Amino acid sequence: NQASVVANQLIPINVALTLVMMRSEVVTPVGIPAEDIPRLVSMQVNRAVPLGTTLMPDMVKGYA
């Protein structure tokens, strides 16, 4: 099963993503693939993302 990107903490809106904010985990439904974590660094989410939430492509500005 493919690992997805999961919030490692509350990720506020309009804050640049850092490695420490994200972890990889096998979850259902599948979200952004874990291998895209380096690409996500410095991008921003378009809504607050609670701890443990799977990041979906539509949550990250400029990802999709």
Rank of each mutant, 00 (worst) to 15 (best):
P38H: 14
M22G: 01
G62D: 14
V6E: 01
M21W: 03
R23G: 07
A7V: 07
D36N: 13
V5N: 02
L10A: 11
P12F: 04
N46I: 12
N46K: 12
Q2V: 13
P33Y: 08
V60Y: 01
M22I: 09
Q9V: 09
A16L: 08
M59V: 09
V20R: 15
V20T: 13
K61R: 15
G62P: 05
S24P: 11
S42V: 03
M22L: 10
T54S: 04
L55R: 00
P29K: 05
R47V: 12
P57R: 08
Y63T: 03
A48Y: 11
T53I: 09
T53L: 08
Y63F: 12
R39T: 12
V41A: 05
R47N: 08
S4A: 02
K61P: 08
V20G: 14
D36L: 11
M59W: 11
M56K: 10
P50R: 09
Q9H: 07
A34I: 06
M43N: 05
D36R: 07
P38E: 11
V15Q: 14
K61D: 13
Q2E: 15
V20N: 15
T54W: 03
Q2K: 14
N46P: 02
V15S: 14
I37W: 03
A34W: 06
A7P: 02
I37R: 08
V27G: 03
V5D: 01
Q9R: 14
P38F: 10
N8T: 14
V5H: 02
V15D: 07
V15W: 12
N46Q: 12
L55G: 02
R23L: 05
L17S: 00
A64E: 15
T28A: 11
P29M: 04
L19H: 10
I13G: 09
M21S: 04
L10K: 14
R23P: 02
V60T: 00
T18M: 08
L10S: 12
P38Q: 11
N8C: 06
M56W: 05
N1G: 14
E25G: 12
D58S: 13
V27P: 00
V49H: 02
I13W: 08
G52E: 04
P38A: 13
M43A: 07
K61M: 15
P50K: 10
D58P: 06
D36K: 12
V15H: 13
V30W: 09
P12Q: 08
V15M: 15
I11S: 00
D58C: 06
N1P: 14
V20I: 12
T28F: 14
T28K: 13
M59R: 03
N1Y: 14
T54C: 05
L51G: 11
V30F: 13
K61I: 15
A64N: 13
V20P: 15
G52D: 09
G62C: 07
R39L: 11
K61H: 15
L10M: 15
T28Q: 12
V30L: 12
I37V: 07
Q9M: 13
R23D: 06
Q44F: 12
Q44R: 13
L10E: 13
S24E: 10
R39E: 06
V26H: 11
G52C: 04
V26K: 12
M43G: 04
V27T: 11
T54Y: 03
Q9I: 09
V6N: 01
T53P: 02
V45P: 03
R39C: 06
P38I: 09
E25R: 09
T28Y: 14
R39V: 10
S24G: 15
P57Q: 09
G62I: 04
V6M: 04
L17E: 00
V41P: 02
A16S: 13
L17W: 02
V30C: 05
S4E: 00
L51F: 12
S42C: 06
V49S: 02
N14S: 08
P33I: 09
I32F: 02
P29D: 05
L55N: 00
A48I: 12
G52M: 04
E35Q: 15
P57T: 06
Q2T: 14
V15Y: 15
I13D: 13
L55S: 00
N14T: 06
D58K: 08
D58Y: 11
A34H: 07
V45Q: 00
V60C: 03
N1M: 15
I32Y: 01
N46C: 06
V49C: 05
M59D: 14
P12W: 04
L40I: 12
S42A: 12
A7F: 02
T28D: 11
D58T: 08
I32M: 03
V5I: 10
D58V: 10
T28I: 14
G31C: 03
I11G: 01
